[in-house]
Design a protein around this nucleic acid. Structure first.
Lengths: 340, 340
DNA sequence: ATAATTTGCGCACCCGTTTGCGCAACGAGG
DNA sequence: CCTCGTTGCGCAAACGGGTGCGCAAATTAT
């Protein structure tokens, strides 16, 4: 009754051959006789034999597991990214270990340690917004565990990464607003330290400057992405003599909080003040006041691409040939406008 | 330069002691001298030594990995559940392998095979809505890989499970509507085959019957959870002579689609027809017309509880003592009303 | 018939770690 | 001085599977 997971050894015993014969028969070795091969393969199928990947790790030094670390999977952006990663992984016989950092650098480190202990073949990561040191990540590289960053990538040259160019995207966003006649365009940006904020801001400034109107830095405020912080940012903006007539929010979640605040203040959302945002999450399709434009960042494609790169690196590694360059994949963000 | 992952063997060589001594020193064995212990532990820390869990698996038959299979992590319910699972897992030195079934039984099976190959210590799963056969799941049990089901559990006795009693919850929901004066209470239920639909329906019928008014089965319609299907259900309901004045939707996502349809039909949502639902997802806080009441199903707690049970089972297993019973944890769903 | 070659399979070791057992060295008690 | 117990450590086997090498038997060439 006690049905253990079958091993090569058991198959060998039942068939009165040696373990090595069974091993070779299963891998279709030419030096094994046809009748033996058949007997072994038949019994293996019958017993539902599955090679123990732990044992294989010793020989091949491959675990067929890749670790994925994300800030929050409950954000649609990241759960879509995982879908891209997972789908490609399954096709290539990889399984994924998941860890969430919850935007906490310490936790990110802990998860990374656990992954290292599990001897993952590679890591795909979108950094926590508290991560500003990269030594622990680089150390994995030293141990020949390749890392591919996506979306929230570190400001380093010698890494593999996939991301959207948000500077360009932001310029598109500003241009779109400008063409609609908006001039007092406010910008609720994210935490200063993270790269994504800097990129957005650069784009904003470049776009405005390109219009030959003065950049008013008082129209640029920050949020740490919490609801309270976003409300404060809104309050600051609308305390001005000339409040903005358009607002760019850091992402769709900030948008939701900002709009909620605006409504409480009896502002006519998307009438007297137009909202645009980043991410283009499906959920915005259901809200009362979606952003009138949102910058699609293709999370599925980013995840897929990151996995594609990782697979390529691993393939190169096991083939013994060195990886030529640092992959640096820029995916174009696209402006999506809501059917108004 | 080529920094390989350090092994016990290397530590032993550098210190001129045997591998076994190093192993024991690291696990604080009493028969190892204090000075040797110190030297070993210091070097281990310095080299950033991490035991190879693959090798440990041979001895202990434990991979310290548990597999989690969910339909879709993009649903907030499941991503919250994962959070509960993951948090507890990390505290107990487990890492989680993630797989999504996308409500496809075939894919679920594939993921399960992959997990088996990876020799997970246990599995936590919320079934795909296409899964109506359980042999492949039971077969894992045969190999002594325990399974804990949660939320979408199979209708079997001899399994470990965690779930909300939705029959009771539905009765609460109906009572709440009744007390508010509603009598024509429609019910947009989910796919017939899944257990959750049956439970909800039972509750609905019991509650109505308890009120001594006739159960009108024409007020009960179905959706397969797609948007189109939900719209059809709505169309059917409002084609009646006496359309419903309250609607219970299968979950918050169905609610969103149903409300969107209602608005297109110029219905006064939550005025002439009141909507209530299941799940109480945070996202509903941002929509124009949230359900006026929703049955909180505590996904975080369910995930946490499932992990807790799994850990208990694994603990019992490695201690050699048999698991006494089949865990059957019922979590009470709670009616949450929107501040109206 | 004998030598050369091919075919079919087993022996033994490797991977990293744990663990039962045994062997020395040392101190204490007789 | 001998025995016994303790302390500190190494040897070797085991886990599941891969693989180079070698040894016989079967086949072919001479």
């Amino acid at each position: 009754m006690e049905n253990k997971i079958p091993t090569i050894k058991e198959i060998a015993q039942k068939l009165n051959v040696s373990v090595s014969t069974v091993s070779r028969a299963l891998s279709d070795h030419p030096r094994i006789g046809l009748r033996t091969k058949m007997r072994v393969q038949e019994l293996a199928k019958q017993l539902n034999y599955e090679p123990n990947s732990k044992a294989i790790y010793f020989k091949q030094k491959k675990s067929y597991v890749i670790g994925v670390i994300l800030p929050y999977i409950r954000e649609e952006f990241f759960s879509e990214a995982i879908r891209g990663i997972e789908t490609l992984a399954l096709d290539h016989d990889y399984t994924i270990l998941l860890g969430q950092s919850f935007d906490d650098a310490e936790r990110e480190k802990k998860v990374l340690e656990a992954f290292k202990k599990q001897r993952v073949d590679g890591v795909i990561i979108s950094l926590s917004k508290q991560t500003h040191q990269y030594e622990h990540l680089q150390s994995l590289d030293k141990y020949e565990i390749p890392i591919v960053y996506f979306d929230r990538v570190p400001p380093l040259k010698q890494v593999h990464k996939v991301y959207c160019n948000l500077r360009k995207g932001t310029i598109e966003l500003v241009n779109w607003l400008f063409n609609k006649g908006h001039r007092r365009i406010a910008f609720i940006n994210g935490p200063e330290k993270i790269n994504a904020s800097k990129e957005r801001l650069d784009g904003y400034i470049d776009a405005i400057a390109g219009k030959k109107i003065k950049v008013d830095m008082q129209l640029v405020v920050r949020t740490d992405l919490t609801k309270d912080s976003t409300c404060n940012a809104m309050k600051t903006l609308f305390a001005r003599k000339h409040p903005p007539n358009a607002i760019i929010t850091f992402n769709d979640y900030v948008h939701l909080d900002a709009v909620q605040y605006a409504k409480q203040q009896q502002l006519k959302v998307n009438k007297e003040v137009l909202f645009v945002s980043y991410a283009n999450l499906p959920v915005t399709g259901y809200v009362a006041h979606p952003p009138m434009a949102s910058l699609e960042q293709y999370p599925y494609r980013q995840g897929e691409k990151a996995m594609e790169i990782l697979i390529e690196i691993l393939r190169a590694k096991s083939a013994g040939r060195p990886v030529k360059t640092w992959f640096n994949e820029e995916i174009a963000a696209t402006l999506i406008t809501t059917h108004s």
